[in-house]
């Protein structure tokens, strides 16, 4: 790696002040599993790294009045093992548990995964179907917005160079709703998803019809997306195989998959149909018996 200056920040204010002082040559570093690889590959050459791993405001998982708050510095291993996340947002725990392998899950953070804005990030779909909010800290204080607005394009977030993701909040009204995450890649570990998906499913009390379904997909568009056409179709429809098939077809139309060296667009569209069925059926299977 090329030489850089290194600073360790001990508060959110100190971190953003350092980033602003050395902008545009500074980048924040947390787990380093993405950043250091890109530096070693000579893709980026920051002159300054601001280590944010000791910033107390960005740590921890807690139930608050607003909902379930997960600090951006919480590692994937911690998200996957958290009793709170497993209870209130099981798909979020499953998604973090599917990232990389044990070694990378012990280093990589939820916030780092999200702000990378790589279209295939595994942490996004489950948070999107739970309508998570992003809390961002900058020199002018905090702002909060729907997580969807963080994703601008491939490797492009809506954060300014001196802003940091502080936490995500899953709103209280969505805690404990039936969710499911699924991912398809060439192997189960250390793989970049060809397609990943998550669903949050609500039905009528008799469990015969969908009342509301939220569906999100990754690796099939410039950013992680919600499949709004498929969601609208599902509302009020009977729980039946042909309905799931049609939802999968509509979800593939909501997406804009590309041909690349990992898979063709056509194969990705097929996978969208398969994963749409899997995550909806998975969420239904996780519901208590009628």
């Amino acid at each position: 790696m090329k030489h850089f200056e290194y600073f360790s920040a001990h508060s959110a204010e100190e971190a953003v002040a350092l980033l602003q002082k050395y902008s545009p040559d500074a980048l924040p570093i947390a787990g380093g599993t993405e950043l250091l690889v890109r530096m070693k590959q000579n893709l980026i050459h920051p002159k300054v790294l601001v280590d944010i791993t000791h910033v107390p405001e960005f740590q921890g998982i807690a139930l608050t009045e607003e909902g379930l708050r997960i600090g951006s510095l919480v590692t994937h291993a911690e998200v996957a093992a958290s009793p709170l996340v497993r209870q209130f947002a099981p798909a979020v725990a499953a998604a973090s548990g599917s990232v990389g392998a044990v070694q990378t899950r012990n280093l990589g953070t939820l916030g780092g995964n999200l702000v990378s804005c790589v279209p295939s990030i595994d942490s996004a779909p489950a948070l999107l179907v739970l309508e998570a909010q992003a809390v961002v800290f900058g020199v002018n204080g905090r702002r909060q917005f729907p997580l969807t607005e963080l994703f601008v394009g491939p490797r492009c977030s809506s954060l300014t160079p001196a802003e940091l993701l502080e936490a995500v909040i899953i709103p209280r009204h969505n805690l404990g709703k039936p969710t499911c995450f699924s991912k398809f890649g060439r192997r189960k570990a250390l793989t970049i998803a060809l397609v990943n998906a998550a669903a949050c499913v609500e039905t009528n009390p008799e469990r015969t019809h969908f009342s509301q379904v939220r569906l999100a997909l990754g690796a099939v568009a410039p950013t992680p997306i919600r499949a709004y056409t498929a969601e609208a179709y599902l509302a009020g429809r009977p729980i039946a195989q042909e309905v799931l098939l049609e939802a999968g077809r509509l979800a593939a139309e909501d997406a804009k998959p590309i041909d690349d060296f990992r898979a063709s667009a056509e194969y990705r569209r097929h996978l969208i149909g398969v994963l749409t069925r899997r995550v909806i059926e998975g969420a239904l299977a996780g519901m208590p018996k009628v």
Partner: peptide
């Protein structure tokens, strides 16, 4: 040297990590 192979795995505070990805 980029976190894929695990040959550099060490325990860091008791947890396995890729030492090639830790400054």
């Amino acid at each position: 040297d980029e976190g894929d192979c695990g040959a550099c795995t060490v325990l860091f505070d008791g947890k396995p990590v890729n030492s090639c990805l830790v400054l």
